[in-house]
């Protein structure tokens, strides 16, 4: 399974690289045609690019990327089980191999997005605007774990399905975004607001928000001025909560996979 999954993952990364390259080319062409290449006009306002904001965006893009890889078990259930289950490996070993390869792929996707960002920053010569807050490392920990939690929950949701898993992933995105909106909305009365807030602990996308204020500038990434830390304490706690979601998702996915019949 390692070989098959590696091929799948490399194919996914190839397409991600193509999309990034196309996006970069488009932005550069538009910027160049407007005379912005080499600098970005920002008036008199203090301009800042906090490093964790870039991590937050990288995590979000990686979540999109791993939407399909989270349903690998489900895609094996689209008629491939007689191949997967007649190898001299247990289902547990097979699953762990898949998760291992996917993990490397997710890290690669995260790194590729950061690389794209670095290329943009270099192209537009805005390195001096990048700031590194004191909690940048902890924030990095949170954002690097977020796609893993997302991946595992997709796996838990789809492991026992076949083709239907594709639709479920779409609905998972809709549900996760909608739940985040409900939890953030100040117009929802209690106890509903409290309930949505609690359920939102299970929503991996909710852990992706980044919000910081510096002088007159407010940076909102992935969720706006709602709680920056879902677990409410620190990025480390959020990372711990995401790790729990990751472990729980994998366990649920594996239980279903082991009960499945071809």
């Amino acid at each position: 399974m390692r070989y098959t999954q590696t091929l799948r993952m490399l194919n996914g990364l190839k397409w991600l690289a193509i999309v990034f390259a196309a996006f970069y080319a488009l932005v550069v062409i538009i910027a160049a045609s407007n005379g912005f290449l080499g600098h970005i006009p920002h008036g008199d306002k203090k301009f800042e690019i906090p490093l964790p904001a870039l991590f937050a965006l990288a995590a979000f893009v990686t979540c999109i990327f791993c939407s399909s890889y989270g349903r690998t078990l489900s895609s094996e259930n689209e008629d491939h089980l007689p191949v997967v289950w007649t190898r001299p490996k247990s289902r547990l070993q097979t699953t762990l191999t898949i998760v291992g390869v996917d993990s490397l792929g997710m890290l690669a996707a995260f790194a590729m997005y950061l690389l794209l960002t670095a290329v943009f920053i270099t192209t537009f010569q805005v390195w001096h605007y990048v700031t590194v807050p004191s909690d940048a490392l902890a924030q990095f920990g949170r954002y690097i774990v977020q796609p893993f939690a997302f991946y595992a929950l997709v796996m838990a949701l789809t492991a026992s399905t076949g083709c239907a898993g594709r639709g479920l992933v779409g609905w998972f995105w809709v549900g996760a975004i909608f739940l985040g909106i409900l939890a953030a909305s100040p117009f929802i009365p209690n106890p509903w607001h409290a309930i949505f807030n609690y359920v939102n602990f299970l929503n991996p996308l909710a852990y992706g928000s980044y919000h910081t204020t510096s002088g007159t500038e407010t940076i909102n990434v992935m969720g706006g001025p709602t709680p920056t830390y879902v677990a409410g304490l620190a990025p480390v706690m959020d990372a711990a909560a995401l790790l729990i979601l990751f472990a729980a998702g994998l366990t649920l996915g594996l239980i279903q996979w082991r009960r499945l019949e071809a």
Binding site: L7, D79, H80, P82, V83, T86, P88, S90, Q93
Partner: peptide, 28 residues
């Protein structure tokens, strides 16, 4: 699972990966 080292199964309906080439399937 170790018995599958010595056992081969060809299902009625092809279960192989359509996106893989013949060479890749052999490598698998």
């Amino acid at each position: 699972p170790p018995l599958f080292e010595r056992l081969a199964y060809v299902p009625e309906k092809c279960a192989l990966y359509e996106w893989m080439t013949g060479a890749q399937l052999l490598e698998m």
